[in-house]
Design a protein around this nucleic acid. Sequence first.
DNA 1: CTCCCCATAGAACGATCGTTCTCGCACTGC
DNA 2: GCAGTGCGAGAACGATCGTTCTATGGGGAG
Lengths: 191, 191
Amino acid sequence: MPCDFLPAQRALLDATEHLIYTGGIHATGVDAIVRKSGIARKTLYRHYPTKEALVEAALRRRDDRWMAWFIAATSGYTDPRARLLSCFDALREWFASDGFHGCAFLNAAGEIGPATHPIRAVSRLHKRRLFEYVCTLTRETGLAQPDEIAEEFLVLIDGAISLALVFGDTHGADAAARSAQRLLRHIPVSS
Amino acid sequence: MPCDFLPAQRALLDATEHLIYTGGIHATGVDAIVRKSGIARKTLYRHYPTKEALVEAALRRRDDRWMAWFIAATSGYTDPRARLLSCFDALREWFASDGFHGCAFLNAAGEIGPATHPIRAVSRLHKRRLFEYVCTLTRETGLAQPDEIAEEFLVLIDGAISLALVFGDTHGADAAARSAQRLLRHIPVSS
DNA sequence: CTCCCCATAGAACGATCGTTCTCGCACTGC
DNA sequence: GCAGTGCGAGAACGATCGTTCTATGGGGAG
């Protein structure tokens, strides 16, 4: 993992990520990507053999950046339980931000049919990375069975994101936070 | 609300629902709908002014049928708490069924950009209907603040569906069921 | 300066998109 | 028999899809 991107790649990935996030993968044409990025079509196809590869690269980079944002946004508390609960504050902020349109990886998985498609693999990778990070948070709390608790948190996180997409508000994050608080209140600490 | 559909409409809605559920809205062309349904293009455009209207009608009917299935699948227990928990048994069964591809309404909302689009309204309607039904279940339990609990259940349900879509397994339903059991164990009954 | 490579702009390719039109066949009421 | 109508099959429309090609114009190495 060395590597920054060339400026042309950066512009392409920025434009692609934004367009497919706000408008969907199939609905965004190469024309729109070229127009928004200011990069020539020929250059696009020099860096990426196909639109699909460009979309996949854009999603991989979004994965990196989203995870970095989420980790940064949930590192403000030293108390492990407060840090775990701050996940939902971060989500609330995200839901209320301009241009929020759900989880790009859930959207991609829902839009693309076959489960063997490379883009579906990016979605799985993202959720697995998120799960691993939540595992580190739950393990720090000293609760019993931290990985199973992390699974429950993953359900709460993705449920909150989905409801925020559909309803356009933050009530899902509030409900998820209530569930999480109850979870922390009633789970025994390990041995 | 009289009305069954004419046979041509039924065939069109069946084909459209199946195609857009498994392949996405934008990825399914009118050609494929015509081919699968065995209905002539001209007939299609007599019943529905545009592909978008046909998709919307197919989603509305899927809403009706999915809700009917979900209600039927969660009516086997007389004990209100067992009935509430049976939601996740129904989901588990759904996740393991052939052709499962997440929630059609979450997928549609994720694929379609503008929140004012008519199809987005169908997604909101579906989740609101699901919420209302879960409310009836939570109210029967006699728990305090049943509507807030129903919100939490909605988060658990949609989170489980999203994880089932991404990972292709039923662990999300298991985790959601654990959260739900803890919820029922630790919430006080109203007054 | 010349040669070469990369970049942009944009035309052009075949394919497919959503939509409309034409045709032919089967059926109905008179 | 015969005009009228509904439907299936499919051609055809312009537009747009993803992709490739040509033409043009710097910028660095020799």
